[in-house]
Design a protein around this nucleic acid. Sequence first.
RNA 1: GGUGAGAUAGUCAAGUGGCCAACGACGGCAGACUGUAAAUCUGCUCCCUAUGGGUUCAGAGGUUCGACUCCUCUUCUCACCA
Length: 399
Amino acid sequence: MLEEALREINRGSAEVIDSERIEKLLTAYFQEGKTYTVKAGFDPTAPDLHLGHTVLLQKLATFQKYGARVQFLIGDFTATIGDPTGKSATRKVLTPDDIKKNISSYTTQAFKILDESKTDIVYNNDWLEPLGANGMLELASTLTVARMLERDDFSKRYASNTPIAVSEFMYPLLQGYDSVHLKSDIEIGGTDQKFNLLMGRQLQKVYEVQKQQAVLMMPILEGLDGVQKMSKSLNNYIGVTDEPNDMFGKVLSVSDELMWRFYELLSTESLENIESLKSGVADGTLHPKKVKESLALEITTRFHSEEKANFAKAEFDKVHSKSQIPTEIEEYNCDGEVWIAKALVDCKIEPSTSQARRDIKQGAVKIDQVKISDEQLQLSSGEYILQVGKRKFAKLKVN
RNA sequence: GGUGAGAUAGUCAAGUGGCCAACGACGGCAGACUGUAAAUCUGCUCCCUAUGGGUUCAGAGGUUCGACUCCUCUUCUCACCA
């Protein structure tokens, strides 16, 4: 039991600091039913979560399964400083109202994964604000500038003469102080947070609250391209609020290699099962697509429902395997004869008539499942199913 | 503060008076092949009902029949010196 728990907890992790501590906490839980706390900090700036964010959430859920109380920390105070990401210069200041809105959308999404009854939502403004100037100075005195500059990001910026605001130095300190206040037993975060996470350990020692927290770091999830990290700005993400059809399709479009990564970091499938899936694919008894399909089903079910996931799968098969028309298509109307290129633009499946012409020339455009080649084609009155490529559809009614 | 280099399409990056809507690479889209996977091959990739027209090469002026290319100023970036 203990062994299995440890394996699940370490699963996919990039680095663990003080794993003995984790083992002790778990042992205490299994033997005496003692709970412990796991802290994770969240920035209230990004209300749209994608699967990259859920890696952490799922790790927290795993901890909950093994006796942890999760300290779901909202960095409402620290959000006003801005974590030194190097490009944070233009960070806008959030109003309390924005923050409140972001948080509620954040938590409803998060509780699709986390057990609400084992989660404490805490706001660091509650203790950082009363800390005051004295407290801040005391906190700042625990650390030297040299030590601060050890942080990779800082040293790089310092070396390249990129400005570093003194307030940015406070960020890791404050995040570390959160751990002091909360007396966290374990803190988890992404590998990019290493410095900040370690700061928690250091400060807990200085303030002599208790034993130092253990730290578990999760890798950054790759996006759909399999190379760069999943992020909204790179448009390689699967959002947790994506439509079931999109979500299913996106998961299915990841490469076989990346699929295993997703399995490790996102699936709740046990490690044994994943191993057997892997060997099944390796010796040819299992088709990789089947394996990917069940992953897509699992993920879609998690954020929507089983029913919707199954529907998305059926829809997917219909459109792609049997190349039929999807059940639901956007509908558009227009009057009089329409030039095909214009119609495609009006239906928002082409960005410009130039692009539409090119696609027609290349045979990417179909009307009612039939490829067309005449770029001068006029559509007279009637109903048409327009299609560009494999995935863009529209229904057009010409009056 | 001084000196020098630079700013080109989504990104990187050629182009140094007409052959430039601008080489190439990446990305993206489409086609073939497939498992809408990957890999590979091919085509396309500013806009406009188009063998043509329009608007582009940081911004504003100027020289010229003609400028992304030359000149002036402005803004911003980078390097070296102080």
